[in-house]
Design a protein around this nucleic acid. Structure first.
Lengths: 83, 83
DNA sequence: AGACTTTATGGCAAATAAACTATAAATCTC
DNA sequence: GAGATTTATAGTTTATTTGCCATAAAGTCT
């Protein structure tokens, strides 16, 4: 479960993973927060042109939150099965 | 130091705080990653229309990283001074 | 293989982000 | 309070996102 998002692509992967773990498809996810399926698809594929608002909408739909922190050079791996 | 970003507005605040702590102004920050000053201003004010790519550029300029995690209902406060 | 579900891609219209430049407004400094 | 720096706002232009609708492509299941 990758959680660190260092680019639109990796963020897209994180969102896709989270969505699947919730057993949702793109259509259902989008419907929760008024985003159409093609847009969800593009975000998950890592479109850097995605608008910030769309990201926060998706985070809400997937019950996720964003944390901003200093770059951890060391901490490369994600200690993690905690979700 | 708020680090949890739950909306474009709070993300803007986090970025502004981080920028100031690095002793940078909007012009200098933007120059690091090819974003003009007015755009930095808008992001810090919380424009939801900001593009994701612009956010990652700014995170890079400020040496920050984004982490996505399950929403923590409890963890309201930010245990703090570690940055 | 065939039917069904899910995801990806395309065109169109409306809305808007960002660069650029300029300038107004706010903030700091002496 | 004047002067300098920093931030906010505005107009114009270009490029792009998104919703909408349709459809193609890929994946799943019996």
């Amino acid at each position: 479960m990758i959680r660190k998002a260092i680019s639109p692509e990796s963020l897209g992967s994180v969102l896709r993973e989270a969505r699947k773990q919730k057993g949702l498809n793109q259509t259902a996810t989008g419907r929760l927060v008024d985003i159409d399926q093609p847009t969800v698809s593009k975000v998950e594929q890592g479109s850097g042109g995605t608008q910030l608002d769309t990201i926060f909408r998706l985070l809400a739909a997937l019950e996720l939150e964003m944390v901003i922190q200093p770059r951890s050079k060391t901490d490369v791996k994600n200690e993690g099965d905690n979700w």
